[in-house]
């Protein structure tokens, strides 16, 4: 993750110093989905959350010459999106006189992490690769295809009990493999 952070920081440097729009596009495509999901933790409405993230990117492009990134570009993005979400909620609060208290309080929990789609893809893929083929097949059917245990058992010609065992084995392995990501996630759940 730290290596990818230096990669992103370098891309941003290209944006700032060379007005490299291609680099900016790369950063956008990389982070946009993750940030939208992140913003949706504060703002339930998906379109508003997306608008906020787009705003953040727009401002970054506009102020690219003056932005001072002290930590990493990733942290900068997280902070910006969070602040914009807070601002939005405050404005809404004034409009509606209605506060989603736990939402506002969630804002104070730190640190937070955002993992890009690619990062998740790679790490989850790697974790899944460590599973025995049967276990993995059962897990993917349950998780990503939304099939019931009975349906999977039917398909794989084993008993639902076996599927249950497969799934819990898969979860156990994944928890170990993905613990770097999970320890962070714990905090805000």
């Amino acid at each position: 993750m730290k290596e990818s952070d230096t990669l992103f920081d370098n891309l941003f440097r290209k944006v700032a110093f060379q007005d490299d729009e291609q680099a900016f596009k790369e950063l956008f495509l990389e982070f946009y989905p993750a940030l939208c999901v992140f913003a949706m933790r504060y703002i339930t409405h998906e379109e508003i959350a997306k608008d906020i993230v787009q705003d953040v990117f727009f401002k970054i492009w506009k102020n690219r010459k003056n932005i001072d990134i002290s930590a990493s570009f990733r942290n900068f993005l997280i902070t910006s999106v969070r602040n914009n979400c807070t601002d939005h909620l405050r404005k809404q609060e004034v409009e509606n006189r209605y506060i989603e208290k736990n939402m506002l309080s969630a804002i104070h929990t730190s640190p937070e992490e955002v993992y890009t789609l690619k990062e998740l893809e790679t790490s989850i893929g790697e974790a899944l690769a460590k599973l025995p083929p049967n276990v993995r097949e059962a897990f993917e059917m349950s998780r990503f295809k939304g099939m019931t245990y009975v349906a999977i058992a039917d398909k794989m010609a084993v008993s639902p009990k076996t599927i249950e065992a497969y799934i819990s084995q898969a979860l156990k392995t994944l928890r170990i493999e993905l613990r770097d990501y999970l320890s962070f996630l714990l905090l805000f759940l």
């Binding site: 596009k25 946009y32 999901v37 997306k50 998740l120 989850i124 994944l174």
Partner: peptide
């Protein structure tokens, strides 16, 4: 739930069309 939410996060991200919004 933490693993679950990580996986959920992953799936949610997949639904977002970054290219269109770009």
């Amino acid at each position: 739930d933490s693993l679950n939410s990580l996986l959920e996060n992953y799936e949610k991200q997949k639904t977002i069309d970054a290219a269109a919004d770009w």
